[in-house]
Design a protein around this nucleic acid. Sequence first.
DNA 1: TTGAAAGCGCTAACAG
DNA 2: CTGTTAGCGCTTTCAA
Lengths: 344, 344
Amino acid sequence: VASVTITDVAKAAGVSMKTVSRVLNAEPHVSDELRERVLAAAKELRYRPKVSARSLAGARSYVVAFLLTSEYLQQAAVPYILQAQLGALAACRTAGYHLLIETLDLSGDLEQEIEALSGALAVDGLILLPPLCDNRPVLDQLDRAEIGYVRIAPATDAQRSAYVEADDREAAAEMTRHLLGLGHRRIGFITGPDGHSASVRRLEGFRAAMAEAGAQVDESLIRPGRFTFDSGYEAAGELLSAAEPPTAVFASNDLMAFGTMARAQELGHRIPDTLSVAGFDDTPTASMVWPGLTTMRQPIAQMTGIATELIIARAAKAGADDSRRAPLTCELVVRGSTAPPGRQ
Amino acid sequence: VASVTITDVAKAAGVSMKTVSRVLNAEPHVSDELRERVLAAAKELRYRPKVSARSLAGARSYVVAFLLTSEYLQQAAVPYILQAQLGALAACRTAGYHLLIETLDLSGDLEQEIEALSGALAVDGLILLPPLCDNRPVLDQLDRAEIGYVRIAPATDAQRSAYVEADDREAAAEMTRHLLGLGHRRIGFITGPDGHSASVRRLEGFRAAMAEAGAQVDESLIRPGRFTFDSGYEAAGELLSAAEPPTAVFASNDLMAFGTMARAQELGHRIPDTLSVAGFDDTPTASMVWPGLTTMRQPIAQMTGIATELIIARAAKAGADDSRRAPLTCELVVRGSTAPPGRQ
DNA sequence: TTGAAAGCGCTAACAG
DNA sequence: CTGTTAGCGCTTTCAA
């Protein structure tokens, strides 16, 4: 049961320990012949480099971490987290990395919290989801502690760090065109919280598509939300009790769309006959409500996968490319919650 | 920025390195005076023991892992995973442990997969959720590789390992009593897959409560499901098209309940007026559908928390107590999907 | 292009 | 009760 070590491999291949190390880390200056001999021996012996030894001796830790806060934790509602993890996990696997989940207590001493992070299990990089990725104090402490991170869909300080984002503006425009295409003209819109990531861009996309189609935007049909079920429920109540209510509501995330559906049905609406509802995210729940929610699928897993690759690349060589990438594309998923208006 | 090591602390406290180590690991044979001096020095210096060094030198790794398979991954639908993680995470935090997410490719070479697990980042223990916790070949390999694990709600081989479970039988009985109390007598039941964890016990609980109330169980109203949305949808279709359909359907998990609600509404039912629907799990989605789903809340986070503590305790001392615990209690959550029958 | 030696920070035996 | 001495398995100097 004794585990095989790098010296075992070295002995089997008839080379020095260091050469094995070089091969395994894809360092240059190794002859092809030795490289192959080492690789063969490693495979034969089923050698697995031990992460703890590597990270103790070297600068890398072979670990990427997801940073969560009690904010996410309490409302297990934040539904995309699991998908985000899966994307990162896949990228870790192919690179021989491991995925850690860490929590940050925002109510505690931030400096100490983050010191704990870096001290205990050194991590090659963190993945920060919204809204944590826009939390200045956290970013500041992270910078100070020299812990690298990649942000997912940050709302602010784009130049501050590497990040990955989706094209929220275009996606929202596409959804709006879908509704317009069905014949809707009075379309309600529920926004996200002010400072939040994609919130602003989704509203922009909505406005742009409306303008493009020559459709009037009634400002009273634009309601503030907070990306929560409850805020969608409330906003929908206001929209539907207006003198001239909309025939469709575009909630800028799924949670608010579910709230909208609930409130609308409570008020006697039949979706989509008397009201169309659209969301944004394509959370797992979207296909479990009735009728199914028409929504934009965000490539969350893809985003975190890319983020993970960035972290790993940066750990591998100092001068890694943090080249900004083009925003990823979302996909329209049409389900039963949208239809032409006025099928009373 | 140089990190503080155990020798720094030892120097500051005027003791040997080993004494510091003893204090930190809560080993016996240290005088109170020295203990306090060490603790003070450690705090002062903000000392954080380095996980990689500890696991390299010692037998423990200070890491607990969640084992997932592509099965869970593809259907991000499995909704309780995040909650399960959170429970484990909390327990890790308080013990200075870290939570890792690992994947297992069941379609690959199992032996090699598991060897990779144990080889690379040694783990103090795994947490296995259903249905993975009932996968014999996996358990066999794990045993062979001497990787410890705690199972959550295993269906089989109870004596095989430590496990944590909920009282599914009693919980299902409680839900059934809730429906009976509302006045339902013709109650449809949708089961889980045959070999699956709690599936059998939930059906038992249902039968027991019915019998207790002197209510007849119509066997044609008991339909097989697979714990998926689709299987609930199908089963509901059959139940509702029966000559004498039920006035309430108890789906033995939430996913199937959502499928039931969807099918029922599609067929023109108004829930709960013409049909009551009950689920089991209290997934986040349960409060986002309309009407809200009446369901049993499983203490998932608590279960994984206990599992984590078991793993940590076992790692700490060889002769840890694997004492079987009493099953945890579920909680009835009444929402809008259940009501007295026949409110046509 | 290769190898030898020296630790990384900690725990595990042993002695005192 | 306390301290000393070796390593854990790897990467990193530095030499050859």
